[in-house]
Computed example of a mutant assay.
Amino acid sequence: MSNSTSYIAPLNTEVLLDEATNENLYFNLIEQINKDFNLANESIDLPQDIQPEELKNELHEKIYRLIQYKFAEYLNLLYIVDVPEDQIKKLDGSDIAELAKQVAFLILKREWMKVWFRNKYQ
């Protein structure tokens, strides 16, 4: 993707994190996630040297806890990150762990889009 000029949404978390790493934008992605979570008053404080697998797990855990115990804050976070509401509504909420995983991916996708566009058009 590094030579392409149009944004293509990654199919899953692994592809997304590979793209971010390959385009040398992984640290920017971490910064963006930290920034938006702080804006939502739900600090996640991901270290710059966090490995992609750890990042995925941390994000999943954080979203899971927000859904379980702080639902209003979870909704606020989705608003701050700007995850499209129609994408959230399509998810099956019957299994909270699976829902948290899917929402974590939607958040990652949105954060990656912000980083990608900022990099391409600044």
Rank of each mutant, 00 (worst) to 15 (best):
A20N: 02
T21Q: 09
N22P: 03
N22R: 14
E23W: 00
E23S: 14
N24G: 05
N24L: 10
N24F: 11
L25C: 04
L25Q: 07
L25M: 13
L25Y: 10
Y26N: 03
Y26F: 10
F27S: 11
F27W: 12
N28E: 11
N28L: 12
L29H: 07
L29E: 10
L29V: 03
L29N: 02
L29M: 10
I30N: 00
E31K: 10
I33W: 00
I33K: 04
I33D: 01
N34C: 03
N34P: 03
D36A: 06
D36N: 15
F37A: 01
F37D: 00
F37I: 04
N38K: 15
A40K: 01
N41G: 15
E42L: 01
S43Q: 04
S43C: 12
I44V: 12
I44Y: 04
I44D: 06
D45I: 01
D45N: 06
P47H: 04
P47Y: 03
Q48W: 08
Q48K: 12
Q48T: 13
D49V: 05
D49M: 05
I50A: 05
I50T: 02
I50P: 02
I50G: 02
Q51H: 11
Q51L: 15
P52M: 03
P52Y: 05
E53S: 13
E53Q: 13
E53I: 15
E54R: 07
L55E: 00
L55D: 01
L55M: 08
K56L: 06
K56T: 07
N57Q: 11
E58P: 00
E61T: 08
E61Q: 10
E61V: 11
E61M: 12
K62Q: 09
K62D: 01
K62A: 05
I63F: 07
Y64M: 06
Y64R: 08
Y64V: 03
R65D: 06
R65I: 09
L66K: 00
I67V: 09
I67L: 07
Q68D: 06
Q68M: 01
Q68C: 06
Y69A: 09
Y69N: 11
Y69L: 15
Y69P: 06
F71K: 12
F71Y: 13
A72C: 03
A72Y: 13
A72F: 14
A72H: 10
E73S: 11
Y74F: 15
L75E: 10
L75I: 06
N76F: 13
N76K: 11
N76H: 13
N76Q: 10
L77N: 05
L77P: 05
Y79L: 12
Y79E: 06
V81I: 08
V81W: 02
V81F: 02
V81Y: 01
P84F: 01
P84S: 08
P84N: 08
E85T: 14
E85A: 12
D86H: 12
D86E: 15
D86I: 12
Q87C: 09
Q87E: 15
I88C: 03
I88A: 01
I88T: 07
I88N: 07
K89P: 03
L91Q: 09
L91R: 00
D92G: 05
D92P: 04
D92I: 13
G93Q: 08
S94G: 06
S94I: 09
D95Q: 10
I96T: 15
I96Q: 14
I96Y: 09
I96M: 14
I96D: 12
A97I: 14
A97P: 06
E98C: 07
E98N: 10
E98T: 15
A100I: 05
K101I: 07
